[in-house]
């Protein structure tokens, strides 16, 4: 029994039953397949998280976001006073996570690629684009750059999905995707 010492003192020499052996081989091969799948996706897949990251002081990042917002602001969102920013296609786009909003609101063109920068002014946040359901962790002190290509038009919400204190559930933002002109 499993609660008593092995009946056969030299248990490591016992032959392994064929059924167990077959299962071990199948499970082992499946592990190799899953490992290979991740690598193959890096070659053929379109969805791989960039690892381009730079250290940056939170204040310096905030300054970059503000400079971009000033340069590319096209309007304000309703009566909220939040700028809607439309950077040119292919350019560097900065999004700031902070207690408790994603700032500013971005307007992107469908089918164009953007270098989207993500960082935080204070604590960790979770960039969660809905209903696309793309989720990326955002750290203070790290500027993470993802080259993103929207494939559908509409208004997409950004939720924070890393707990960041009492206002966590109010922390939202938006990305508009419009047709290419």
């Amino acid at each position: 029994m499993a609660v008593t010492p092995p009946t056969n003192r030299v248990w490591w020499n016992e032959p392994v039953e064929k059924m167990e052996l077959v299962w071990v081989v199948i499970a082992f091969l499946w592990g190799l397949v899953m490992f290979a799948t991740m690598i193959v996706w890096h070659i053929v897949g379109q969805q791989n998280l960039s690892t381009e990251t730079y250290r940056i002081k939170p204040e310096a990042y905030v300054a970059k976001v503000e400079a971009m917002a000033e340069k590319f602001k096209v309007r304000e969102e309703g009566s909220t006073g939040i700028p809607v920013v439309k950077p040119s296609a292919g350019s560097d786009v900065y999004l700031l996570g902070r207690l408790w909003d994603w700032w500013p609101i971005l307007e992107l063109e469908k089918g164009q690629s953007y270098r989207l920068h993500l960082s935080s002014a204070d604590w960790q946040h979770g960039f969660s684009l809905q209903p696309v359901n793309l989720n990326i962790q955002v750290h203070p002190g790290y500027d993470h750059i993802i080259t993103l290509t929207p494939t559908e038009t509409g208004a997409f919400g950004i939720v924070c999905n890393e707990f960041c204190g009492i206002g966590h559930h109010q922390m939202t933002g938006k990305i508009y995707v419009v047709e290419r002109r």
Partner: peptide, 24 residues
């Protein structure tokens, strides 16, 4: 989670948020 709902989150209706977001 497959529909995108955040963990550790008090209000999935975002009623207090300035910019509204909605889950299906």
């Amino acid at each position: 989670g497959t529909l995108g709902v955040a963990r550790r989150h008090w209000d999935m209706t975002f009623s207090d948020a300035v910019v509204s977001v909605s889950y299906p």
